[in-house]
Design a protein around this nucleic acid. Structure first.
Lengths: 217, 217
DNA sequence: ATTATAATTTAGGCAAATCTAAAAATATGT
DNA sequence: ACATATTTTTAGATTTGCCTAAATTATAAT
């Protein structure tokens, strides 16, 4: 598997998870920030390698081999993110780019020793689950802040948007993984939400509310 | 700089150090395990990028920028080797291949934090010096075992051949970095050498003697 | 000095991954 | 249902890094 192939597999996997159906050429091209013709080419190549099945003009669906491979890359990515944050003092908005490179180093010994060195972590710094050696992981049901209920207290467990901008915004408002958040008020006019963070109260916009994941505590 | 460019720069740097003169196309091709025509192509490309100067049919010589870049890649390689051996339980014959990949991840933050995390090591697991942030490193004069004197006691500080075969051979004879070695006898017939390792005496062949570096203790 | 040999470069081609532009297939609106 | 719009695919070009084979330049030998 080349670097490009691995990145496409990962993108297809994410789109499959997100929309629970075959991945369209356009969606894939957009995810990969490339053109539809390039996506078509790569889909063909991955189909030949039996990583996915593809019916022209319909969607692409990962095969078991393709899904396993994608999960392997995701495992590497998330383990490296933990390493960067816990051992090398990266903040959670800095890890993504470097992890994008580290995830392509294909050595079982490297990944499994790293896993052990980190103490077999189960979640990455964005709250996403880390597959184990066999590719198993448990997905925690995430509640998006936009749909949280007034009066209930939640714990922050992840983000959707992992852009530096968004993560910096969260940092500057002292919101991170594990932060306890109480929903105080939802403003119907613009869908903004007033939160309680300990003694501090802040109001966040709808776009923030759509990108922050919580679970009940 | 692409991956291929970085690898060529490193190879040119090593050949320059080794032979103290301009690097020939053939030597470079051999080092890179490729063909002379490919080496010519890459030399041209690196010359255009001002990483080296090249006079056709004569040799290539790194520019300051080229040398700085090569040293940067070597720094990354050696730091990762330390990480793999000290933190991830790699043995010194296993690190090279993985470090070849890790060395191409270009993030100053990553490398400098790794350096700090490892406690600013100055030598890698093969005894080679690790350049600091500014690219400075001190080269210890290495005495090759083949030229060591009978009756003198030395410390093992490095190897030339970093192949898995050779390193495994050393391991199986309990020779590693820091091992104290006394030269007991040099056999003129086949240039083999009898060594004292603590209470144990072993005889090593000339090919071993040419690849093991020592310093006086 | 001239020829033989070795080293180097050039020429032309290939595969991967991308692009633009055009063609083909599918979906949509009235 | 049929024209129009959208999506997808194909065709052809480009770049990078590599190759083989041929031509060129340098070096060595007599």
């Amino acid at each position: 598997m080349t670097l490009a192939e691995e990145n496409y597999l990962k993108a297809i996997y994410h789109l499959e998870q997100q929309f629970k159906k075959g991945v369209s050429t356009n969606a894939l091209a957009e995810e990969m920030k490339t053109k539809a013709s390039s996506a078509t080419d790569m889909i063909k190549k991955l189909a030949e390698k039996n990583m996915l099945t593809h019916i022209p003009y319909q969607g692409a669906t990962l095969s078991d081999a393709g899904r396993d491979y994608a999960v392997k890359v995701i495992r590497r990515h998330r383990l490296w993110e933990v390493f960067l944050v816990e051992k090398l003092n990266f903040s959670w908005d800095e890890v993504h780019e470097v992890a994008e490179h580290l995830e392509h180093i294909n050595s079982d010994k490297l990944v499994n020793e790293l896993d052990a060195f980190l103490g077999f972590p189960t979640y990455d710094p964005h709250g996403d689950p880390i597959p184990d050696k066999e590719g198993n992981f448990t997905y925690i049901e995430k509640i998006v802040l936009a749909k949280a209920e007034v009066g209930i207290t939640y714990k922050c467990i992840g983000v959707d948007d992992t852009s530096s901008k968004f993560l910096k915004y969260l940092d500057s408002n002292n919101i991170g993984l594990g932060t306890i958040i109480k929903i105080l008020y939802k403003e119907p006019f613009d869908n903004s939400i007033k939160l309680g963070l300990g003694k501090v109260e802040i109001v966040v916009s709808q776009s923030v509310a759509k990108n922050l994941y919580l679970k009940k505590v």
